[in-house]
Simulated scan of single mutants.
Amino acid sequence: MRSQLDAQIGAVVVNHNTSAWTELLIRSLFVQNPGFGRLTVYDNASIDDRSAMLDAAAQYGAEIQQSGFDTTTTTNSHGQVLSKFVLDPRNAELDYVLFLDADVCFTRPGTIRTLQEELERTPTTFGAGPRMSWDGETEMAPDLAANPEIYRDRLHPACALVRNTDLFRRVVDEVGLSGATQHLIGQERYLDTFRLATMVMRTHGASHVIADALIMHAFAVSYPDESSSLIPQKEARRDAWLQSLRTG
């Protein structure tokens, strides 16, 4: 097994008017995972204050690119931007692709190494993800974790380390990573970002695995949902972590 320092890992995150969150992601990724490879931040023409995020990107060598979308795009562009990263010819030689959400914070050391080690223990897996926490200390409540969209039915792109195989790249090229709607008899079923690709990978005998690692995931800060009332609480926690990381 190649060590994390030897393996070529390329990470990608999308900033959608979430620059303070993306700053936290950048700082915590590199602080908690020393020797990490490279990170690309695709920005959806964000109009919030990006200055501190840009400072963090410069400090840790993260690349900022415009995605080609903006914050008024009516459809969630997340999966399409992730696909763009995978299919960029410059990334074809990566050993692994690490997908990240802007509202993730690494609160424990060595998370990426743990994901890689879990992948290498199980050759039939195509990707590995951590367990998720709202506070960065304890896993989310069992009733929330039981949601099949979190762990069971898809590799959640909040934090997903994926083998950059020819098969995976072909699935991304042919199927993509965007959400999809199945029109069934009498009902419609929405497949969230990365779920359809996870389903297709399973048809090739390639499953995903959840490693013994924990991250903070704030959930739903880019696009509003029923939990939007919790954003002030989430932002207060974010700002406390930022203060700690900025001061070292």
Rank of each mutant, 00 (worst) to 15 (best):
D192T: 12
V162R: 03
G248L: 04
F219A: 10
G129W: 07
R163C: 08
F194H: 09
Q32T: 06
Y96N: 08
L230H: 13
D135A: 04
V97H: 10
V41R: 01
H217Q: 14
D239W: 00
I9D: 02
V31I: 15
L155C: 08
R154E: 09
T73D: 15
A158F: 02
N76L: 14
A197D: 00
A220P: 01
I215V: 15
E23Y: 00
T18S: 09
F85R: 05
N147Y: 10
Q243C: 12
T203Y: 02
T73M: 11
P123N: 07
L167A: 10
T72C: 07
S67V: 02
L98A: 11
A20F: 04
F126E: 06
I9C: 02
T75V: 12
R108D: 08
D55L: 11
D88W: 06
S83Q: 15
W21T: 00
I215P: 01
V13L: 05
E93H: 11
V172A: 06
G35P: 07
R195M: 12
E226F: 14
D166W: 04
R154C: 09
D43H: 06
R202A: 15
N44Q: 11
T72P: 00
Q233M: 14
N91K: 11
A220M: 08
Q32S: 12
S133L: 05
D192M: 06
L94M: 14
F168C: 09
L245T: 00
Q243D: 13
N91L: 13
R27H: 04
I185T: 12
A240S: 04
V81K: 05
S244W: 05
T22V: 14
K84W: 03
V175F: 06
L25V: 14
V221Q: 14
S244A: 15
L82R: 03
P34L: 04
V81R: 02
A56F: 01
E174F: 07
V41K: 02
E23F: 00
D95A: 11
F69Q: 10
R108A: 12
T107E: 08
S207V: 07
L191R: 03
D173H: 11
N15R: 10
F106I: 02
E139V: 13
L230S: 14
D101E: 14
I185N: 15
P148W: 10
D48L: 09
G179H: 07
A146Y: 05
A146S: 15
T18N: 07
L82D: 03
E226H: 14
D143R: 15
V97K: 01
L184P: 00
A56E: 06
P224K: 06
H204W: 11
S83H: 11
M199A: 14
N147K: 12
V13K: 00
T193S: 03
A236E: 13
T203L: 08
G127S: 15
R202I: 05
S222G: 15
I231D: 15
L161W: 08
V175R: 00
S222L: 04
P89I: 11
H208G: 10
G205E: 12
Y60A: 02
W241F: 12
V97I: 13
Y151N: 03
V13C: 15
E120T: 09
A206P: 00
N33C: 06
F69G: 08
V171E: 03
T198V: 06
A220F: 09
A58F: 06
H217W: 07
A145Q: 13
